[in-house]
Design a protein around this nucleic acid. Sequence first.
DNA 1: AGGCATGTTACAGG
DNA 2: ACCTGTAACATGCC
Length: 289
Amino acid sequence: MPELPEVEVVKRSLISKIQNLIIKEVKINDHRLRYPINKKEIRKIVGLKIKKIKRRSKFLLFFFNNDIIMLVHLGMTGKFFYINKKNTKFKTSFYYDINNKKDTKHDRVVFFLNNSQKLIYNDVRKFGFIKFYKNNNISNTFHLNNLGPEPFDHKFNYNYFRQYISGKNRVIKDILMDQKFVSGIGNIYANEVLFLSEVKPTRKVKTLKDFELKKIIKFTKHILKTSIKLGGSSIKDFSSSNGKKGSFQQHFNVYGKKDYFCTKKNCKNKIVKSIISNRSTFFCSNCQK
DNA sequence: AGGCATGTTACAGG
DNA sequence: ACCTGTAACATGCC
């Protein structure tokens, strides 16, 4: 589900609701996530306070006392729900949260909090994971130490772009989704960035002109920021929801828009869909060169 | 029934 | 050691 903007929105929501609370109990309904949950390690956070919550790329880091860090990746379908203990109504919501949620089937882990609420990790496809580290070796984990710069980092600039792609024989869409190049962009935002940059996703990076690299950098930062402001993209549309949902999906120009008309003025083309590296790719063959 | 899905990574071959 | 492309993971929906 989540790319950088969605994870950022989840992080902010978590901070506002559970920062400084204490884990009273943890219940595991299914430990078979992408990596099996280590039951001994997860028990160690019982009694500890959630001091800080940070995001790096699409990862969430929960900082507890005793130097313990819980690293969470939401995979494709991971979600957090903040719910009251009597299981009646959600007090508030995180990304994708819905008030009439009946999907308890995919609640994989339940964290009971000292304010009588609970935090649920729900993950349909189980591509997400929850792992534990000590503060002093978190950056050594292979999950984090091969990541490229955050898109908003000043290090993500034209010179870096030029240097990274030199000698590479790949297409631009693959590079944008390469977490070693820049961290946090997935299939949706890669498609959208290339549309606004007017660059065809199939272009080999060695053919890109300076002004195109600059546009890609500019629109990457712009799109991700805008999406965060709008609460991210909520792709599924639940019928009755009191939960907060993102609205950036209403601003998609190409993602999922096969056969729709191109949104650029004076363009009569329809968006086409193709497959690049096993991922659906959408673009306007008229506007994107 | 078969294809597709917002992500990551292990592996194979060059 | 680096580069690139492919398949696999688990589950549900259209």
